[in-house]
């Protein structure tokens, strides 16, 4: 086997080689001090990089976006009618609420039946106070 290159050693240290290739590379390095030193050098770089990556804030969870949905006809058939139904429900609920409130806008609502509007209290107040 030829001597290792930096790229060979870097790929080995990063776990980017097939098992067979990694094994033969290790076998060669065991009998070749220069290549063993190369593996050690790349191992140190690998450990430093791993430490740097661990120190970085973890990336957010993987969000696939809508592309997979667009590619899924079954999901589309379910989700689109659901979305339309939800929109219609919101629309009719809003319209029904507006009809209840009447043309003058929202009617005052009170927590308790004995509550009266402040304007009514003002009308009852003695004149001149």
């Amino acid at each position: 086997m030829n001597h290792l290159t930096h790229e060979d050693a870097a790929r080995w240290a990063a776990g980017l080689l097939d098992e067979g290739r990694a094994t033969s590379l290790e076998a060669h390095a065991r009998s070749c001090s220069g290549c063993e030193a190369l593996l050690a050098e790349e191992a140190r770089a690998e450990v430093l990089l791993a430490a740097a990556l661990e120190a970085l804030p973890a990336p957010g969870p993987h969000l696939p976006g809508f592309a997979p949905l667009r590619r899924s006809p079954r999901l589309t058939l379910v989700l689109v009618p659901l979305a339309l139904a939800a929109s219609l429900a919101v629309f009719f609920a809003a319209r029904a609420s507006a009809e209840l409130d009447g043309p003058g806008g929202a009617a005052p609502r009170y927590e308790h039946e004995h509550q009266v509007p402040l304007e009514s209290l003002a009308a009852l107040a003695p004149v001149g106070l």
Binding site: W12, A13, G15, E19, A22, E26, A29, R30, E36, L39, A40, A43, R44, E46, V47
Partner: peptide, 19 residues
Amino acid sequence: AQHRRRVMVALLADGHSLS
């Protein structure tokens, strides 16, 4: 098999020989 290489790399980085 999955983690063997990572463990070896840690030792090589610490200055140990491959064997």
